[in-house]
Design a binder for these strands. Structure first.
Lengths: 183, 183
DNA sequence: AAACTATGTTTGGGATATCTAATTATCACT
DNA sequence: AGTGATAATTAGATATCCCAAACATAGTTT
């Protein structure tokens, strides 16, 4: 039987996730994590940080006594790491696959990371691995996407590019005659 | 010189975007849009809808007099249509490319739609067109992704699958000897 | 150690978005 | 036209997240 104030099941808000991610990242960059640094990283003022630290502390996501250094609890580390993983994965998809510039990709990944479940994230990762892992399949294909994107997509050109593409892959396109077994 | 209460530049919140999208969609499904229907669609109670309608009305995104029928203004239609476009595109990416089931894809698209800019959306669309538009490039390749995803990605198997893949594409993989011009 | 500077916290308030309970309006039917 | 059911609004409360101003502490310098 759970206490009526039990909080362990309430989902975290996007803001809480952002703070945990920021604390997680800052913790790897610096010896100690300071209120000032969190505020700067997230673009908020210090009082806002203090009040969120109280919230996170009540939820046992950080160890925190006022004026003292703060640390993520085990639970807090789990969340921070997971959000960081989502951020990194989505940004990587946006930059490496869709060819969006880093700054914009980073901003949008930061918003998307709260919308995407762990299982969907995994699917993104598999998809990127699929594109990049198999020998001769990956990077050339992405170059081709870039070409396609920048120069339009008329059906005629498309087949021509498919041929260049195939060369890049070390493959040869069969003629339709060959495919259909005609002489 | 702008009035100090000028509101036209304040960005819309995700919640406002959700309401406009819902109103836009309901408007296409029914003769009139009712508070009850919006509430049901968005999973909120009717008073919440009423209060948001007042907000949207102040911002000139809907025409609304209490107890009367409501309609999107031109501005409101633009936003509603754009959010719907994002939702549809992202869901399509999640279902058609990443193979996520419809219900989950729909839920996550609904959250992602507020995180993704119009220009990034366009890049998603181009990417999907790239996969599906060019003859013989698209759907077979996605089947191959599915295969890859479900049966692991050992480098050895990878080349074998690349060959099947090539067959599906009506292409033939050159041997490395052929590629390097050896006998 | 006293004074000064950095940093951090408290207080009090604003905006958004939601709810429940109570009230009021509209519609359809007899 | 009166009445009952359905729909919509108002009133009042709560939670989250943010801020500025005032205050408190910690760290540094003289």
């Amino acid at each position: 039987m759970q206490n009526k104030d039990d909080i362990s099941k309430k989902p975290l808000t996007p803001a809480m996730e952002d703070y945990l991610e920021a604390i997680f990242n800052l913790g790897k960059e610096k010896r100690v994590v300071r209120v000032k640094d969190i505020a700067k990283r997230l673009g908020v003022k210090m009082p806002t940080v203090t009040s969120m630290l109280n919230t996170l502390s009540k939820r046992e996501l950080i160890d925190y006594e006022k004026y003292e250094y703060l640390e993520l609890t085990e639970k807090g580390v789990d969340v921070g790491k997971e959000i960081h993983r989502r951020h990194h994965t989505l940004r990587s998809f946006l930059t490496n696959i869709l060819n969006i510039d880093f700054k914009k990709a980073d901003e949008e990944a930061c918003k998307m990371e709260h919308a995407v479940s762990a299982s969907t994230l995994d699917r993104f990762i598999e998809f990127m691995e699929f594109i990049q892992f198999c020998p001769r399949v990956g990077l050339d294909w992405l170059k081709y996407f870039d070409e396609y994107r920048l120069h339009g997509q008329e059906p005629d050109k498309c087949l021509a590019r498919m041929k260049e593409f195939a060369d890049g892959f070390k493959v040869r396109i069969k003629t339709m005659d060959e495919v259909e077994g005609k002489k």
